[in-house]
Structure formats: structure tokens, C-alpha cells
Design a protein around this nucleic acid. Sequence first.
DNA 1: TGAATGTTTGACCAAATGGTCAGGAACACG
DNA 2: CGTGTTCCTGACCATTTGGTCAAACATTCA
Lengths: 212, 212
Amino acid sequence: MNETGPSSRIPTQPRTRIQRRNHKAILDAALDVFSARGFRGATVDQIALASGLSKPNLLYYFPSKEAIHQQLLSELLDIWLDPLRALDPEGDPISEILAYVRRKLEMSRQMPRESRLFANEVLQGGTHLSDTLSKVLKPLVDEKADVIRRWSDEGRIAAVHPHHLIFSIWSLTQHYADFDVQVRTVLGNAEPDPFPEAEKYLVTLFTRLLTP
Amino acid sequence: MNETGPSSRIPTQPRTRIQRRNHKAILDAALDVFSARGFRGATVDQIALASGLSKPNLLYYFPSKEAIHQQLLSELLDIWLDPLRALDPEGDPISEILAYVRRKLEMSRQMPRESRLFANEVLQGGTHLSDTLSKVLKPLVDEKADVIRRWSDEGRIAAVHPHHLIFSIWSLTQHYADFDVQVRTVLGNAEPDPFPEAEKYLVTLFTRLLTP
DNA sequence: TGAATGTTTGACCAAATGGTCAGGAACACG
DNA sequence: CGTGTTCCTGACCATTTGGTCAAACATTCA
């Protein structure tokens, strides 16, 4: 065991300037590599190269490949759920849901690597996530599903299964990040940026679905 | 190079009974392993074990891990596109699209491994697919998109962007196979089989979206 | 300036992994 | 039955990969 290096010290915060810089560089490079090739497909050498560090130096900052992956995932889930957290029970139902859709789609556009990291993980059984999934994701979804059900009961939106509504928002928006290659291949050069049309389409879809 | 074995002979059809049996066993085991762990995450040993063969014996039937993967993918795409091929330009527009949705959802239920294999591949840049994607998938989608546009122009369905409509059918139905873990975690034990509700929800969604 | 602390690296290792090969076992068939 | 072909395996190999370590190099700050 390598007992030197900041990685052995359970640092709440990286201390020095250099540590902060390299920490960041590693996580960014790792996001590139993990999202593009999956956990097993990524090698420590690739991450080291992409972050501009040597492999031993990288392992001075993180105890293992696994640890980097783990940290990325745990940081990710919070960011990932923020758009749903922001769904306001006191707001106008349809506007709130449409705003959620827009925020999620915007995340697919701005953070495709994060989306793919998550997709890779869930796709392969979500072993590194299953705890967080049931302890963080499920309660939040249940809470927001209740809000949607209430709106539905009050006749402010059309009747829909709240959980499946949420699934559909996830799948429709994340599709543009996760299946990017396919989307762009099918659309061809005529529509180089799929997102503007995607937004129009999704707004139409959810408006027609939800308007009572 | 191992020049013995049926794999070196470009066999149009496996010859003997044993070859047919083992070929099938290998492809089935490989589908299990590749879909669950991705190409790089899968090992030849795992596939060999799952198919009940020794590693050298497996490599007697296929020249390489890559070759198994390749064959699975090329067989897959045809199956995968069948539901779309069946979309009948002469049929009733809404019934046709709903039937397509149902067929795709049924495939997610019956063939989740295939769905995940495909997702894994596209997610990681689709390098093994990009040719087929542009030469087979795109033309077919363009053709069916034209049909949908015609229906739209004739006022038989509401106005929608045809390509994005197709994307939405893909993402919504495949989500239940690809993100199975997440779906089941969120729904909990109360709804052990998500598919019946999923079908209701999707039928409602597309009916409301498309009814003029 | 110099000692303590933090950072970096070349060389190295053990395990895992894709693949090979020589030869033995099982089978088909005249 | 025997002989040619198909099928199967233990032993082996080269490469890749995650990770280690001692020692050199920087940086900080008293």
C-alpha cells in the first residue's frame, strides 16, 4: 500500500493549489474517458495521459481507478437530480413540468459526458449506484410523483401515471446525449444541431399530453 | 494463426450438428455477457464458461472475441429494425404508429439483452456500427419519416417532426430495457412488472400527441 | 538558507486477458 | 474395423493493465 500522498488522508478539501489543480484535471480527464468507454473500457494510462500526469502521479492523488470512478458518480447524482428538485409544488403545473423538461434537455446538451457516465453505469446493472438509487433517487421521485398526482387529481393536468411521466422525461431528454451518434447519423448534415428541434418537439409532446 | 477449426473457413452455414449447437450456445452466452458488461468488460473466459465450453474450444468456433461481438451486432440490427419496417404506409396512421410503439415495447420486454447490447454500442460511439447506421438505419428511417410527414400534411395526424417522433418512440420504449434497474428501483415492489403500465402510458401519450 | 513537507517519476511487479499450439479424444463413414 | 475428419484440452505465451516503491525533485516557510 502506498501510504504517502493526499489520497490516503481522507481529505475533506484538497489543501494546496497544486492538489486542487491536479484533482480537477484528473476528474475531468476521467469523465472524458469513462463516459466514452465505460469503466472497464477505460484504462488508468488513458486517464493519466488525458490529464497530463504520469500514471504514478495520478495514483498519488487517487488510491485507485475505482476511487476516481466512485467520486465522479457520487458528485454526479446530486447535479443530476437538481432539475427535479427544482420542480415547485406551488407553481403552475404545466409550466413546472415543461420547465423541468427544458432543464433536463439543457443538461443533455451541456453535460453529455455526465449523461453517458450515468447511462453506462445503470445499463450495466448499476452496482456502484444501487444504494444511492434506492436511498436518494427513489425518495425524491416518490415525493415529486405525489405532487404530480395531486395536480392530476385536482384536474390541473390530464390524468397520467406520475412515475411513468417522470421516466418519459428522463428517457426523452437523455436520449439526445446518450444516443448522440445515432441521432446525428439519422438526421444527417441537414440538421447538425438536433437540440432546437428536440426542444420544440418535446414541448409540443408534453403540452398535448398534459393539457386537461 | 490458428488455421484449423470451422471459423477459418468462412462457413455460410454451420455444418454439423455439434457446430450448430455450440455456435448457438456461444452466441447466446456472449449476448448475456456483452449486454451485461459491454465489449471491453466482457472476457472470453466468461463467455466460454457461460456457454459450457473451454476457452480454446470457443476459439475453435470463432476466431476472436471481436468476431463474436461483430456477428451478434450484425444479426441484431435486422431484428431491431423489423418493427419499423412493418409500419404500413397504407394503414390507419394512428393505429400504425401505436402498433409500432407496442411492437417496440414488446421487444424491450422480450429482448432486453439485445436492447442493452445495442445501447452499449451506440453509447460508446458506435464505432462497430457507424457503417450500418448510415447505410441501413438512416435510409429506412428517412423512408418512414416521409410516410409520417405525408400523414401529417394530409391532416390525418397532428403536425410533428417525423424524425423526432421516431426518436421518441425509440427512447421511450428502450428505456424500459436499458434502464431496467433504475425503473424497478424507483417503482419498488409495489409494481414489480413495469410493462403493463408502461404500455398504457405510452398509448395515452402518443394518442394525445398525434390525434389531430 | 535549510529543513520539512509536498510532488513527480522511472523502474518494476503480479494478475488478468486474448490468443496459440501440439496432440489426444470422439465421431463419421467406407 | 480402420482411417480421415472433426472436436476438444492442458499447457503455454505475449501483452495489457492496475498498482507499488524508492528515490529524486519542488515548494514552502521559519
